[in-house]
Design a protein around this nucleic acid. Structure first.
Lengths: 247, 247
DNA sequence: CGGGGGGTTTGATCCATGTCAACCGCAGCG
DNA sequence: CGCTGCGGTTGACATGGATCAAACCCCCCG
């Protein structure tokens, strides 16, 4: 888990993993830390890893030792039931943390798969705990991140428990749009990294239903879809669908 | 939020809130702490409160300052959508923590309502953070508790996203049974504290569907239902239903 | 002891979404 | 450059659970 042999041998100046010069620091763990505190966090995070599209970052059941911060790319997490059913529990993008579910049992409880070529920082958990005993701001921010995950999950439960298909998809698109915006991308135009089936799994729908809902939104002029490319044309319209609870 | 005036005036020896003599300590925050560490945790938890059946412990939007440990009783948490829809996000019993979702925004994100007369310990959050900077075991255990909440939520997402009505109810009953067992109650006989409607809300079903599923289980000899009283007759049978994924 | 009301059960019907199947279209590869 | 195959779209039909409605049961209260 240290620098690659090749890099060592050739003395290639390896880009140092450093929160302090990461452009995602406002979205990620270092949020709110002073320069000096961030330097200490940097010390702890010295492994970066590339994960190619389709590869697993970790699998359910593996021993948990690190959480991961996504530097670039896009992931999904999913859980598998004994009988073969599975469900996507989330999609994660740059600046978000992966692996928090592993803390509870010291084993990962889900699979994390890259949906495009990605890069992550390893954050050894016991060292993170150690540092967060010393840096209050880090501790507090970490707690907020975990709590936010819980709130997010409640939102998904709400979606799965009370919304109809088109409401779910509208909520999903608006959520993506908002997260892309926070990362400086266009809020109205992006490429989906996941298939219709993966969207469906996340939203508790079949892929055909997802596809039909996309078509319907397009007919109504709310979005323009072309395969994985999405343009959002009418954000208020989508919001209205989300809360249009007709029945 | 301190001792009641009456108690003060009459110098009634008020039962001290003390984790060290709470019979739920193995299920609650103090898990794994030494005597001395537990004593320090005791210092921090000096407010207990009774919450009558039907009363709110907190409401969505209120400022967050404490988490709560349930000493006795039974709660539900629910979230409300703007359009009036709501969903029960969980049922909590003795030894479990309430309020973790409030950390992220420093405001509670859901309502917590007592489903029977209950008693909770206030755990001021900033002091908990302070203490967990000093006691590693406390810090680690707290992280595990938050992580467990995330894992639990993923389980509910799975349930809502992939299971059919009877599977959901079977999973729900088995979960309750298991939690009652962990608290030393019968695993096969208990009283539901919530209505059919609340169960339905939690499981993403209508109350009629919940009622029908109960009746079906009874016909098949899996359980005996009489109003809120449940006897579980065939745990393996229920487990089989849960994973019988026929379609 | 006789209402009254909230919670529950049960039946009849409807509808959103699942299922099955055919076809399309783009991307990757020989 | 034309297969080949995966992912996506669309249609026809099936069905699980929602909806609407009625009746029931138990508990509380007068």
């Amino acid at each position: 888990m240290s620098l690659s042999p090749v890099a060592k041998e050739l003395s290639i100046p390896v880009i140092k993993t450093a929160c302090s010069n990461c452009n995602l620091r406002e979205l990620c763990l270092p949020f709110g830390l002073s320069e000096e505190e961030m330097a200490r966090l940097d010390e702890l995070i010295n492994v970066r890893k590339r994960v190619k599209r389709g590869e697993h970052l970790y699998r359910a059941g593996q021993p948990f030792e690190s959480i991961f911060a996504i530097r670039s790319g896009f992931f999904k997490t999913d859980v598998l039931l004994e009988d073969g059913r599975d469900q996507v529990t989330g999609f994660q993008m740059a600046g978000e943390l992966l692996g928090l579910d592993g803390i509870s049992t010291e084993h990962h409880s889900c699979n994390a798969v890259a949906l495009e070529d990605s890069e992550v920082c390893y954050i050894p958990f016991s060292r993170l705990e150690q540092l967060s005993r010393e840096i209050q701001a880090l501790q507090h921010h970490f707690h907020k991140v975990m709590s936010r995950e819980i709130v997010r999950d409640h939102g998904v439960m709400m979606l799965l428990g009370t919304m109809r298909a088109e409401e779910r998809l509208a909520a999903f698109l608006l959520n993506l749009s908002q997260r892309f915006t926070a990362r400086g991308f266009s809020h109205s135009e992006f490429n989906l990294r996941m298939t219709r089936e993966e969207i469906g799994s996340y939203l508790g729908l079949k892929l055909e239903t997802v596809s039909r809902a996309f078509s319907r939104f397009q007919e109504e002029g709310l979005i323009a879809v072309q395969q994985k490319h999405i343009r959002i044309l009418d954000i208020p319209g989508l919001k209205q669908i989300m809360s249009h609870h007709s029945h």
